[in-house]
Design a protein around this nucleic acid. Structure first.
Lengths: 155, 155
DNA sequence: GTCAATAATTAGAATCATTCTAATTTTAAA
DNA sequence: TTTAAAATTAGAATGATTCTAATTATTGAC
């Protein structure tokens, strides 16, 4: 283990387990990226993850952030969120939920589901095998002035 | 009306109406792009739309294709489909339905919903106003050999 | 129909997100 | 330890999308 592991690693064992289940190794970079994702409940882009992780671990590279995010997605610890043409966002809430995308400010919020995702009234064709259901809602935060970021485009 | 309108324009009146409702003009480029989208039930990328439209109207530019797709989305005739990190796809099926994304071959299929989209068990927070619900399912076409494109990654 | 104002189109440059490359370092296991 | 495989790195390359400034088309008033 290198000099870099200076981060609370309560999550490390879960991370190590999940990674190795997918034949992936635990590295200090992966620990830091995972820690950064868990530290906030927002939905950062790869670039935002890079900047936040760099604050903890200045030597990390963008390529590693992408590799790590892919690794975390592959081993089921993180979800990719694609809501518009902009950069992909990442979400470490693995409970059943859906995403709200504000078209004014670009912010992505989690929305709880009232039932389990299995209860959704979708009939799957026999020739397709589903791995994951993603639900997203486009709309606007009310009170445009309160929009989280980017200053609302409308008025 | 220019020399370019050589295309069956049953759709033109609907298109003109919807465009003008949003304060947008009907142009021959917009007619062609809309026609191209309606001609197939797949989910082309902007680049694919560009190539298909160019076959009917060789002078059209990529910038116009993007502008037009945006216009069609804004006036409610077309939906944007974002399923992964790749290029956005466009869908002119405006019935309630969801999208299946095959992780092996990249193909996007429409899936019918068994109920109306309003029946979905989601409780919207009061401070958010929804405009559109998007549901997508990630998975794999069974029979990997039959995958539509890109030759299946798995074996 | 003609004109002016506005909107749309165009080619190409610019930007942004993501992936690739090849060299180096780290990890895990013998 | 040693070694093979996996991960990391910086930076180049690619691909998707947006921007820019000049030109052309459309609309509505006359």
């Amino acid at each position: 283990m290198s000099e870099h592991s200076k981060v609370p690693s309560v999550e490390a064992s879960e991370l190590a387990k999940k990674l190795s289940e997918s034949g992936l190794r635990l590295t200090s970079q992966r620990e830091h990226v995972f820690h950064v994702l868990r530290a906030q409940t927002d939905h950062p882009t790869a670039d935002e993850v890079y900047l936040r992780t760099k604050a903890e671990m200045p030597e990390i590279s963008m390529a590693t952030v992408y590799n790590t995010l892919d690794a975390l997605v592959r081993c089921g610890l993180v979800k990719q969120v694609n809501v518009d043409r902009a950069a992909t966002r990442f979400c470490c809430n693995m409970e059943d939920h859906c995403h709200f995308y504000c078209e004014e400010c670009g912010w992505v919020h989690d929305i709880e589901l009232s039932g389990g995702i299995r209860d959704f009234p979708i009939r799957m064709p026999r020739d397709l095998s589903a791995r994951q259901l993603d639900i997203s809602i486009r709309g606007a935060c009310r009170n445009p002035g309160d929009c989280n970021r980017k200053s609302a485009g409308s008025s």
